[in-house]
């Protein structure tokens, strides 16, 4: 990109020769400065947060980390959040993958409609949705509305804009029609087509949408706190009311945890992609 590629030489000199792009070096320096500034802006809070957690009255120590790690609520609330996340991801994928495939294959004209529905959760903020949930589902059995099950069910909605978008672009990137017709032509049932042809081809999209859902659930505070469930983010705020250093420590922990998960997910996706390329070569 730095230099203009003149792959198509002009047959005659027209007087409009491509000008060499000037100032490449200046632009390059500006780019480095931009990256350094952004890196500083993004790393500063991380560094500052860590410094804050180890700051003692006289010197530095790890007491706030020890305090946090000794709290039984850490594993309890994180466990609850993870369970909710697993439920959300399962419902999300079971519902969204067939829907997206169906729209592409059978009802392309309804694609706009589904897309519009899928972004509706962005129009209705979580804090408003929770008002509606609390008043509309008063009559539901307690198994649903009184347990974190309701959170899973509603988080599927909150994650829908992202899940749909990721899966939709994933399906758009494969030649779905040919794959399905080939598989059907060879005698595969619809279930086999879905599980053994489509899902493996969508693997990286599915993984990415699962990651986004997981990140959303692990960070969701609004609904959980207003519906009085003690999830991980709700617990962080509780800790913060008495022990600011501890809360900052858990915040770093959750950031690193999210990073680790993203890394694991992208590793899974990359390994798969690599093996596919090798096979086709």
């Amino acid at each position: 990109m730095a230099a203009v590629s003149t792959a198509v030489p002009l047959p005659v000199t027209t007087g409009f020769e491509p000008r060499p792009r000037r100032g490449g070096r200046v632009v390059g320096t500006a780019r480095v400065v931009i990256f350094v500034l952004f890196a500083a802006y993004y790393l500063m809070p991380v560094v500052a947060a860590f410094e804050f957690t180890v700051r003692g009255t006289t010197g530095y120590n790890l007491s706030s980390w020890a305090y946090i790690l000794s709290q039984p609520d850490l594993t309890a609330t994180l466990g609850l959040s993870l369970k909710i996340a697993v439920g959300t991801i399962a419902i999300s994928l079971l519902m969204m993958v067939p829907t997206v495939v169906w729209v592409h294959l059978r009802a392309p004209r309804l694609r706009r409609v589904i897309e519009a529905v899928s972004v509706l959760p962005l129009v209705i903020p979580a804090v408003v949705l929770v008002v509606g949930v609390l008043s509309a589902f008063q009559g539901l059995p307690n198994v649903i509305k009184g347990t974190p099950v309701i959170l899973s069910l509603e988080y599927v909605i909150l994650a829908m804009p992202y899940t749909y978008r990721v899966l939709d672009s994933g399906v758009g990137a494969i030649d779905l029609k040919t794959l399905v017709e080939a598989a059907r032509g060879l005698g595969a049932s619809w279930l086999e087509v879905l599980l053994r042809v489509i899902v493996p081809n969508l693997r990286s999209s599915i993984l990415f949408s699962a990651f986004l859902t997981l990140a959303l659930v692990l960070g969701e505070f609004t609904m959980a706190s207003l519906m009085l469930f003690n999830t991980f983010p709700v617990w962080i705020v509780q800790v913060g009311q008495s022990q600011a250093q501890g809360a900052v420590a858990v915040s770093i922990f959750s950031l690193v945890f999210a990073w680790f998960l993203l890394f694991a997910f992208s590793l899974l996706g990359a390994r798969r992609r690599g093996s596919r390329r090798r096979r086709s070569a």
């Binding site: 809070p45 410094e51 990140a215 960070g219 969701e220 600011a244 993203l262």
Partner: peptide
């Protein structure tokens, strides 16, 4: 992009506390 994926999804709560440690009354900055 992967950093953006994380930072865009960190969620408000951890972010708030990290900023308290940075630009709060006793923050590092």
């Amino acid at each position: 992009t992967s950093a953006s994926g994380v930072f865009a999804n960190v969620g408000g709560v951890p972010l708030a506390f990290m900023f308290i440690a940075t630009l709060g009354n006793l923050g590092m900055v």
